[in-house]
Amino acid sequence: MELLEKTDKIQEELLKNFEIKIDRGDAIEPRDKMPDGYRKHLIRQMSQHAHSEVIGMQPEGNWITRAPSLRAKQILLAKIQDEGGHGLYLYSAAETLGISRDEMIAQLHSGKAKYSNIFNYPALTWADIGAIGWLVDGAAIVNQVSLQRTSYGPYSRAMVRICKEESFHQRQGYEIMSKMMKGTKDQQGMAQDAMNRWWWPSLMMFGPHDSESPHTGDAFKWKIKRSSNDELRQKFIDKTVQQAEVIGLTIPDKDLKWNEAKGHYHHGPINWNEFYSVIGGGGPCNKQRMAHHIKVHNEGEWVRSAAKAYQEKKEKKLLHL
């Protein structure tokens, strides 16, 4: 009993020191003492972020072999490769918290870990590649820019690198959309159709309204999260509306209106029923995305075993020399 009280005291002390550091604006590093809740929150958020990058390779990968020019193919391939690289940076940052990539992948496969809902929608036409780059990456970047100031050092450093690299992603998507809007009637139709399908899911990427969002308390106190869902969503809308206008695309929201007093756009209601049903597995591609990831993981097992066996043999040989 006495011992328990003592550990409680130590824990309290640690938490206090940790919070002093956070308040001072110090970055937390892997070997620093941190509350369990902080570690857990980070592992959940960072692994979800990493999985999103990797699963996000699939909808765009769907168009690699059909990209309409050598330049388009090159750009798309480089972009998807970046997503893979970013997944890798994030896994690597999450691993500093004591979880292995193997465990994270197992959690993804078991459904314990999630990935961004947006990738449960299909990429149907080439214009979807434009919409994904412009809207989906655009929304992701707003969030990621804010996360550059997150309190966990490795996460923040990964975000800085990712933001630097992703600055071309949104541009490539917008370039596709703008080219198509300048093109034939068919192309314009495709572009508007993609806009109509991706706009609302992009807004949902920022998560539920602040009034509904769980977990935000600690995440804010610990400076993991630096801006609220609604703030980030508003930022995204405000900058995207103008870009749509420039190339002649219509935002599929009849309630969208500039609010002079607030200096922001007012948007119509988001269909949260859709959001929750897609999260719950009801999206058009949930099963397909997971099945693909699991299949690839399993099919690669013999390759990974071979590489390990080769290395073990070499080590053995060295020992017997």
């Binding site: 690699i64 480089a78 690669g300 390759v303």
Partner: peptide, 16 residues
């Protein structure tokens, strides 16, 4: 065609 199909993430980047 290997993009998002490689045995390990690092190899995915290499083949790309």
């Amino acid at each position: 065609e290997w993009c998002s199909n490689a045995p390990i993430l690092e190899e995915d980047l290499a083949l790309t």
